[in-house]
Design a protein around this nucleic acid. Sequence first.
RNA 1: GGCGGCGUACCCAAGUGGUUAAGGGGACGGUCUGCAAAACCGUUAUUCAGCGGUUCAAAUCCGCUCGCCGCCUCCA
Length: 483
Amino acid sequence: MKLYNTLGGKKEDFVPVTPGQVKMYVCGITVYDHCHIGHARSSIIFDIMRRYLAYRGFDVTFVKNFTDIDDKIINRAKQEGIAWNEVAEKYIAEYYQDMDQLGVGRADIEPKATEHIQEIIDITKGLVDKGYAYAVDGDVYFQIEKFSDYGKLSKRDLDDMIAGARVNVNERKRNPMDFALWKASKEGEPSWDSPWGPGRPGWHIECSAMSRKHLGDTFDIHGGGADLTFPHHENEIAQSEAFTGKPFAKYWVHNGFITVDKEKMSKSLGNFFTIKEILSKFDAEPVRFFLLSTHYRSPIEFSDEQLKEAEVSIDRYYTTALRVRDFLVQDNVKEKAGAEEKAFGEMLDTFRDRFTEAMDDDFNTALAIGNIFELIRMLNKYLDAKPSGAKAKELVVRAQDLLKEIGNALNIFSRTPEQWNSSLMRFKCPNVTEEFILSKIEERQKARGNKDWAAADAIRKELEDKGVVLEDKKEGTAWKVKV
RNA sequence: GGCGGCGUACCCAAGUGGUUAAGGGGACGGUCUGCAAAACCGUUAUUCAGCGGUUCAAAUCCGCUCGCCGCCUCCA
C-alpha cells in the first residue's frame, strides 16, 4: 500500500510499526456547534480508510477524540447561558446524530480532553522539567526554538514564520510562535488544579496526551483536515517528540477542503452547510458517494448539482441491483450465454484486484468508483442478451456479490432497491402515496388494454409531474421515483 | 512576503514517463418499446492552461508565463 505522507511530502509505502496492526488517531471536532459538510468529509474519509485497512486484513485501532474544553466552548456557553460542559454534551449528541445518519462508524476509542487532564499535566510538567517549556503567571508555554525539528511537518522555517507572524503579541511569550500547553483560567472559567495553579489545557496538548495514552509513543497514522497541519499537528509533533524522545506518528494524512464557489467552506466566511441541512434535502448515501468520488486530498466543490449527480449514480446501482434480482428469481434452465460472456468473466476475475489496486494507491476511491461503474455497465450488457442457465446465474451472482463486497468496503450499496426508492420518495415526492401510484397504474392498465394510448400517456404524464416514472415490463408496470 | 497545491471534454473526475487519455452527468443519434422509462451501442479530448526544454518517448520530468486556491490566526 502507498499512502501520501505530509511529513515526507510524497506517497510512501505503508509499513506499520507492528506488522498486521494499524494504530490511527484522527483529530475530531471541537464540540461547540453543529457539524458542517466539511466535518462530514473528514469523518467519512477516515472512516473509509479505517474500513479499508480492516478489509485488507489489518487489525485496526482507531482513536478519534472530542475536544470538549476550549475558548469556543466557553464562549458558546456564555452565549447560551448554560454550563460549558452542557455545551460539550449537547454537541457531542448532535455529532453522533449526524454521523449515525451519514453511516460513519464509531471509533474504537473516543476520548475526551477533559478525561485526560492528568495525562496532560504530566506531559506539560515533563516538558518543563526537560527545559522545552516554561511557566509564566500560571500559563505554560512550549518554547519552539528548543525543538530543532520544529516546522518539519508544515515545511516552515522558523525565521520566516517569525517575520510573517500574525499572532497577537503576548508579553509572556519568549517567542511569539511559542504556544500554550496550559492556560491559567480566568475567574468563572472552568479550571483544574495544576502545579501552576488552576487552569485548563491549551489546544494542542490534548491530542498528544490522548494519542499517547491510547496508542503509545509511536503509532502509525495521524489524520485530520489539511488546515490542522499548521499549527495544530506541528505543535503536537513538537510536544510529543520532545517529551518522549521518540518519533510520534509515522504517517500524517490530511484531507482536502470542501469549497463553495471555489472558496474554502468555513465558519468565518459563513459559506457552510450543516450536515443536517444537507440531509434534509438528500439521502446520506449520495452524500457519501459524492465525497468519495473525488480523491480525498483534492478540494471538492460542493453544490446541489453535484449531489444530484451522485444521486443519479446511486440510482443507477440500485436499478441494476433490482434487475439482477429479477433475473435471479427466473428459473430458466436452458443454457444460454449472455453478451460477451468471456469479457464479463474476465472482468469478474480481476475486479477485486482492480479495486485493491486503486485503494492501495493512497485510497483512490475515485478510481475505485470508476471501476464499479465499468462492472455495472458490463453486467447490464450481459443481462441485455437475456442469458439463462447455471453458468449465467453463477456469473450474475458473482457480479452481485462483488458489488456488495466492494460497496461494503466503501460503505455504499448496502440497502435494497426498495429501501432506496422509499428514501427517495421522502425527498422527492413526499405527498405521493404508494396507494395512489398503484391506483393510477391500474387505471392506466385498463386504458392500455383498450389501446387508449392517449389516456395511458396522460396518466404517465400526471405521475411524472409528481416525480414518479413508470416502466412497462413484460410482468407488468413498475414505478420508481424520478431522480 | 514565506510555504504548499491546482489548471484534463459542455460539467464533474481518474490517470503523473510508452495504454485506444478511466468512470459519471449532460447533449445528440441509434437498438428495444404502442409510446416511454430503464438498459445497451455510437458520437461529444489526435489532446491534457500557454510557451519553451530534457527524452527514442511527456498530460505525466524541468523552466518560465498566465489563471485559481489553500496554509502562515480559530478552522475538517
